[in-house]
């Protein structure tokens, strides 16, 4: 429910992302996640400013570190955690998990675990929206690792030559797995790359969610009018690449500096300083969110696993020939009168 305090609303979204991700970590420690391929977006909550500049009906794809984006766009924490736990009631029936989560109801066209894999899909979505004359924008969210993938530039070029309602959003958390961005590219001014392709481009300071929102809004608005754009939000990945990663490639000093640029703490401080929200109100909000996520986690853990028979569904459309299970194949050979 939006208030008349935009920063307060952004803070709430960011706090929900932070707490959700902390619960994912807890879920893993408790052995309740399906696997360890869990990529937390703690430190990247400034993305709430971009998500708030989107309109209902706008579509998006994300990378493998996309929990926060989905949550900010309306994802239900219980069904998200259920999917992360590989449960039948998860968004994808337990077939996708953390890295492949989608929800057509909120325009989430899918999280992708191939770096850059979901980027061209928003170009196609933009093509559909232009052709079908809807008022939607499609946004691709990806990490700085994808800035070195060729398909990004093909996608930017196609969006530009066809004037599509598309925005490419780089969440530059400084690391592609264990490789720091300055070892992956000689020029980190990513907005220059976008402008070279004829796109609008902006660099955002991910520690300042208000500034992120202010800069993202005109870029998304312009895309809606057929001028595709690009955003790169600088932030710091507080934790390792995935749950098993202890970050041997960076030192404590760097981590301390990175974590000092905390968008959630900064927004909290500004709200108090400007007297937009008293500390007591923020404490109460934080507790409410902690309760919400605790409840969601327990609910998700209590959900059931998918039925084994479901494994053959959804390979093809339900009206089409399904795959033949190996046991059925064997029975057709060995079960006959021989």
């Amino acid at each position: 429910m939006p208030s008349n305090r935009p920063l307060f609303d952004l803070y709430r979204t960011m706090r929900r992302i932070r707490t959700f991700e902390e619960r994912v970590g807890e879920m893993f420690v408790r052995g309740e996640t399906a696997g360890s391929m869990l990529h937390l977006s703690i430190g990247e909550e400034g993305v709430a400013g971009i998500c708030a500049a989107m309109a209902d009906g706008d579509a998006f794809t994300t990378h493998h570190r996309g929990h926060g984006i989905f949550l900010a766009r309306g994802g239900d924490p219980v069904r998200m955690l259920a999917e992360i736990g590989g449960k039948a009631s998860g968004y994808c029936g337990g077939k996708g998990g953390s890295m492949h989560i989608a929800d057509t109801a909120v325009g989430h066209l899918g999280a992708n675990a191939i770096v850059g894999g979901g980027i061209p899909h928003v170009v196609g979505a933009g093509l559909s929206y232009k052709r079908l004359k809807t008022d939607q924008v499609a946004l691709a969210f990806f990490g700085d690792g994808a800035m070195q993938q060729g398909v990004l530039y093909e996608s930017m070029n196609l969006a530009a030559i066809w004037n599509l309602p598309v925005v490419f959003v780089c969440i530059n958390n400084q690391y592609g797995m264990g490789t720091r961005i300055d070892k992956a590219t000689a020029n980190t001014a990513f907005d220059e790359r976008a402008r070279a392709f004829g796109l609008n481009g902006a660099l955002l300071d991910g520690s300042d969610v208000e500034a992120v929102n202010a800069a993202a809004t005109p870029i998304i608005d312009a895309a809606r009018e057929g001028a595709p754009g690009f955003l790169s939000m600088t932030c710091y990945r507080f934790h390792g690449h995935a749950r098993m990663d202890k970050s041997p490639y960076r030192d404590d000093t760097e981590e301390a500096e990175g974590r000092a640029r905390d968008p959630v703490a900064k927004a909290r401080g500004v709200l108090i300083e400007r007297a937009e929200a008293p500390e007591a109100e923020l404490d109460a909000l934080d507790r409410m969110i902690a309760d919400e996520m605790d409840t969601a986690l327990e609910a998700a853990i209590g959900e059931g696993a998918p039925d084994i028979a479901a494994m053959f569904a959804d390979v093809y459309d339900p009206g089409e020939l399904p795959p033949i299970p190996v046991r059925q194949h064997l029975a057709a050979i060995l079960g006959e009168d021989r």
């Binding site: 066209l109 170009v123 196609g124």
Partner: peptide
């Protein structure tokens, strides 16, 4: 609008077709 010449960008054009197929077109 229905017959689109693309640049020489195979991953981009096939990925675009995937996205169009997800959102109401039959590419």
């Amino acid at each position: 609008e229905r017959v689109l010449d693309t640049p020489i960008s195979e991953p981009g054009l096939v990925g675009t077709a995937v996205g169009a197929a997800l959102t109401g077109l039959r590419p």
